[in-house]
Write a protein that binds this DNA or RNA. Structure first.
Lengths: 222, 222
DNA sequence: CGACCATGTGAACACTGTAAACATTGCTAC
DNA sequence: GTAGCAATGTTTACAGTGTTCACATGGTCG
């Protein structure tokens, strides 16, 4: 019951995942060392192999944990969003990239090397779970006639791509230094373009702030 | 002059980059070993350090080479595209994701770990160079009145995000097995959604093939 | 209590990136 | 042409890695 047990840590598995999460946050998923997480957990390196097949399996576990966290963040965002289905969808996207700026290493861990290749069906299902909130919002918006009657999978693909792509660009550093506020602006802009499209439209682009606004949003202000 | 020189390989630097490119193509950028590229180049490991500061510098060099290749692919795509500026823009995006499916490891090498963090201004400039074709097409489209009068940077960000995101999703394996044809369909769909937007529009979505079509494209068929 | 099974440890192996000292070559100046 | 120099490769070595093997420990059940 005490915190120190010579053998039989208690439940090492979770402790290892927790240690790995900290280690990933510190030095990123590529400079991540099995031995150092063992050290951090106060255990010898081979002990890890009682709970994980190999280093990649451990990394897969942290990736899964990270996925659950980003999903939670997106759920929270939906919960606190206005009732408009398009705005809810938008909120999930913004939450996605906001998670990426706030926890870039954890975000990178999810998009890691041979992770998907190693755990194919699992990772794919997990991806679908993560995007379920977006999908639900989109379906609702479509049913409300606020979205074009186009196969939902195509819309989902575009939405996932734009949001994941923005997050990735930020995390890779291609947009320079990006803080939370800037990330939010980017996400607002990008989702607005996605919503309104590139083509000119009668009254879609009259917002003076330089950041595009979805027509659905503009209604509230007009 | 002969191919075999005991010392003084000739120009090792390029040979190392070439070897590294093959090595990356074989085992991906993360399982990439400085020693094995030295072996492949027929040279001892420390010889690499005469031409590159460390392993990351070598990886940065291959990333740069990969960037030039994807830029070339995009330029080719523009050259063979119809004259419509929106279609040209679209062609660059499609070429981008097509490169990603055809050379996933090389694509991943460009979005590598601390690459940008290590070579900040360089990588950023190189990114801007890569997207220059897209930008030019967009500007042309905007000047032709085919694109909304919105700050070009916002459109660029959305375009880059959607295209990079799709490529990344494919490369990460999140969309399952994706061959060149499927990738092309995805890219067509995604760019069409980006072009037309999510919102319902009078006559934008009547294509029966299930793949969205830009109005600009549809004109030709009408 | 004793046997067993899960879970931990220690030593060892092949491999990695990198540093230091040394060897070989091509070029340049006398 | 040859001495010297700078450039370029090599050998050896070290710390650190992922992983395996044989062994140690401890909780659990007959």
């Amino acid at each position: 019951m005490a915190t120190k047990r010579a053998y039989h840590h208690g439940n090492l598995r979770e402790a290892l995942i927790a240690a790995a999460l900290k280690e990933v946050a510190r030095s990123g998923p590529e400079a991540f060392s099995l031995r150092s997480v063992a050290r951090r957990a106060g255990v010898s390196p081979p002990a890890v192999y009682r709970h994980f097949a190999d280093k990649d399996a451990l990394l897969a576990a942290v990736a899964l944990e990270c996925s659950e966290r980003i999903s939670a963040a997106m759920r929270d965002a939906v919960a606190n969003a206005p009732d408009d289905p398009l705005e809810r969808f938008r909120a999930t996207g913004i939450a996605y990239v906001q998670f990426a700026v706030e926890h870039p290493e954890h975000f990178r861990a999810m998009s890691s090397p041979g992770l998907v290749a190693h755990t194919p069906q699992l990772q794919r299902l997990q991806f679908e779970a993560r995007t379920r909130d977006e999908r639900e919002s989109l379906v609702a918006a479509q049913q409300a006639g606020k979205i074009a009657a186009v196969p939902i999978e195509e819309l989902m693909l575009a939405a996932s791509s734009v949001v994941h792509g923005l997050a990735q660009l930020i995390v890779e550093g291609r947009l320079g230094e990006v803080d939370a506020a800037a990330a939010r602006r980017f996400a607002l802009s990008v989702t607005a373009v996605l919503g309104a499209g590139l083509m000119p439209r009668a009254e879609a682009y009259d917002d003076p702030r330089g950041v595009l606004t979805l027509p659905a949003t503009r209604k509230k202000r007009g």
